[in-house]
Amino acid sequence: MDEYRGGAPDTRDEGGLTTGEVARRLGVAPTTIRSWDSRYGLGPTAHTGGRHRRWTAADLARLERMCALTATGVPPAEAARVVRAETASGPPPRGGTATAPGPRAGERARSRAGSGLRLGDVRQECKGIARAALRLDAVALDGLLDDAIGEHGLVVAWTEVIMPTLQAVGRKWESSGERYVEVEHFLSWHVSGALRRHAPPVAADRPGATTVLACVPGENHTLPLEVLAAALAERGLPVRMFGGALPVESLVTAVRRTGPAVVGLWAQSRTTASRPLAQHVAALEWGVRGARRRPAVLTLGPGWAGQTVPGLPHPPGLAEAVAAVESAARG
């Protein structure tokens, strides 16, 4: 897994990366890499190990620059012309001594490629997903999301791959005059689809074991609840998902009709988080007389920071929320 961390590619014992590994790093389909090779001459500079072609750090830098240009709307043919020109204009040798212009060109290309989204120190998969989202490349994005969830599982994929990328996209449009809004919507939609593809069927209801998930009134950020619902379904726990901005009366009705063990209330903003609402839901009772039960209420999301409710857990992340639900539902 370390091969997917950090920005600089490893060269491995074979002398470079395979086309598939390059595609995952860049967030493009392998067929795109091969097309850029055959059409524009942006293939690997050397063969290594017989017929198998391996990509070096300098090769990868050229492709990163290609991705950065096409993500801004430059046609592929023009982007390739720019990349070839930049590569050819590397600093000349000094005093007859051979220099290594490749790393300089690679350094330049990496810095420009990274200017689209500032991701920081994250898994390499984040960068591939971000590039695919910037290009609005649906096929590549779905493939990368499926690979991340399939390899790491829902919880780790969300925490270490998907969420950092979503946060980077959010920071980008907030700092750029609300540009890139389409990228955020595009990425969120495909993440939601990936969660549905990988989540198992909803488990059958078991008395006292169901979890109700809903956004508080005025809150429409449903994606974190979607991943929590998928993670709980993965563990065989019955879930009832009510999505965004559920009115108070409807939330109360849902709790009384389902008799849940847990109610998760998501608030993205402090303006939507409501301590009285959480306390009201926690006081609801269900069941027959003499055996009344109350749900465990989880206050979920950053909106509850600084106004958590005494006695009501506030899990800081997805893994903690899953553990809290499992404890209450199975306890």
Rank of each mutant, 00 (worst) to 15 (best):
D2N: 13
R5S: 12
G6R: 05
A8L: 13
T11P: 14
T11Y: 11
T11H: 10
D13N: 00
G15S: 06
L17N: 14
T18R: 11
G20I: 12
V22P: 05
L26C: 04
I33Y: 10
R34C: 03
S35R: 11
Y40L: 02
P44C: 08
G49E: 10
A57Y: 03
R62N: 11
R62F: 00
L63H: 03
C67L: 07
V74D: 08
E78H: 04
R81P: 09
V82D: 13
T87N: 05
S89Y: 05
P93S: 13
T99N: 07
T99F: 00
G102W: 04
E107K: 10
A109C: 06
A109G: 01
S111Y: 09
L119M: 07
L119C: 10
Q124P: 01
E125W: 06
E125K: 02
E125T: 06
C126E: 00
G128R: 09
I129A: 11
R131G: 01
R131W: 12
R135H: 00
A140K: 00
G143N: 02
L144F: 09
D146L: 01
D147Q: 11
E151Q: 06
G153T: 02
T159F: 07
T159C: 11
V161A: 02
I162F: 05
M163Q: 15
L166D: 00
Q167Y: 02
A168G: 15
A168H: 02
V169S: 04
S175M: 13
G177A: 13
Y180Q: 01
V181Q: 11
V181D: 05
H185C: 05
F186N: 01
S188G: 08
S188T: 10
H190L: 14
G193V: 00
L195Y: 06
H198T: 12
A199C: 02
V202D: 14
A204Q: 13
A204H: 11
P207V: 08
G208C: 00
A209W: 01
T211L: 04
V212L: 15
C215G: 09
C215R: 03
P217G: 06
N220A: 09
N220S: 14
L225E: 07
L225Y: 01
L228R: 10
A230Q: 04
A231R: 10
G236S: 00
G236I: 11
V239A: 12
A245C: 13
A245M: 00
L246E: 01
E249Q: 14
S250Y: 09
V252A: 10
T253M: 12
V255I: 15
R256S: 08
R256T: 12
R257F: 04
G259Q: 12
A261F: 02
G264C: 05
Q268S: 07
Q268M: 10
Q268C: 03
S269G: 02
R270T: 15
T271R: 13
T272Q: 11
A278N: 07
H280Y: 07
L284Y: 05
V288E: 13
G290Q: 06
G290S: 02
A291S: 14
R293F: 04
V297Q: 03
L298Q: 07
T299P: 01
G306P: 03
P310T: 15
G311K: 14
P316A: 15
E320Y: 09
A321K: 08
E326S: 15
A329E: 01
R330T: 15
R330P: 01
